[in-house]
């Protein structure tokens, strides 16, 4: 039978083409020559969080003397460019909420009673994390893949900011090949100066197929001796109205819980 099939040159060509397509489609991630950095980055985003979700996080600032300050945030995110975070603790910060729409960020302080624009390099909590870290959008929403290489069990992605309004000009992202989640990310200014390094740690099953690092640590040569960490406790898929991501809704974010 096989002899019969291969006897036709047209059929040989057909099977050869099919084999090439199958090879290209089913290629294992380790084959660098045909790596698609953009597809990998999209998958990294997908693995870190669902399209629309709610999340609880604890943020810890660790000072050089070991002193800690802790903040607990409730966050919701929709699509690639909308995110809101509400402070649940400590009491001095409770009720504060922050909104991000693309590169726009606002802070609502209950006492002040109105949202004020904030910038991505500021930090509403102090410590090493700035506002763009706390209200992080999808990496693929803010960065293009400039290059991709392989090193052992990791992909190394060089990412370039899509615009000048993004907090870091370039990122060097190390991605675990198997899990397709980041392990370390170095963040650079346009001058080439290293601003901070992010370390994704301690993978955890959050349910509904979400398996991702549950700890994000950071340090910075600009804040010697300081360290900050984000601990993720709960990530749930959640349907959210677009109107939730507006200034008028900022005082009411707690209603989403």
């Amino acid at each position: 039978m096989l002899v019969k099939i291969y006897s036709s040159p047209l059929k040989v060509l057909f099977f050869f083409t099919l084999s090439i397509i199958a090879y290209l489609t089913l290629i294992t991630p380790g084959q660098a020559s045909t790596l698609d950095g953009t597809a990998i980055l999209l998958q990294v985003d997908k693995n870190l969080s669902p399209e629309s979700y709610e999340m609880y996080r604890k943020l810890i600032n660790i000072e050089p003397d070991g002193t800690k300050k802790e903040f607990v945030l409730y966050s919701v995110k929709k699509g690639q460019n909308k995110m809101v975070a509400l402070f649940l603790s400590p009491a001095s910060e409770k009720g504060r909420s922050t909104l991000r729409l693309n590169d726009n960020m606002w802070l609502y302080i209950p006492n002040v009673g109105k949202p004020i624009r904030i910038t991505s390099l500021q930090s509403v909590v102090g410590g090493v994390f700035n506002n763009s870290d706390i209200l992080r959008l999808d990496y693929s929403a803010e960065y293009d893949v400039a290059s991709i290489t392989e090193e052992g069990d990791f992909y190394l992605l060089d990412l370039k900011a899509k615009s000048k309004t993004i907090a870091y000009d370039t990122l060097k992202m190390s991605v675990d090949k198997k899990a397709l989640v980041p392990t370390t990310i170095e963040c650079f200014a346009s001058s080439g100066m290293l601003i901070k390094t992010l370390y994704y740690k301690e993978p955890k099953d959050f349910g509904n197929g979400i398996i991702r690092p549950s700890v994000l640590e950071t340090d910075s040569p600009l804040y010697k001796g300081y360290k900050s960490a984000m601990i993720y406790a709960k990530i749930n898929q959640k349907e959210l109205a677009d109107e939730v991501f507006s200034l008028n809704y900022l005082s009411r974010v707690d209603e989403l819980r």
Partner: peptide, 17 residues
């Protein structure tokens, strides 16, 4: 007075929130 803790404690109890 803030306590000085050298070990990293990443415990997170959601019940209280």
């Amino acid at each position: 007075i803030p306590s000085v803790t050298l070990a990293e404690d990443y415990s997170f109890n959601l019940d209280e929130f």
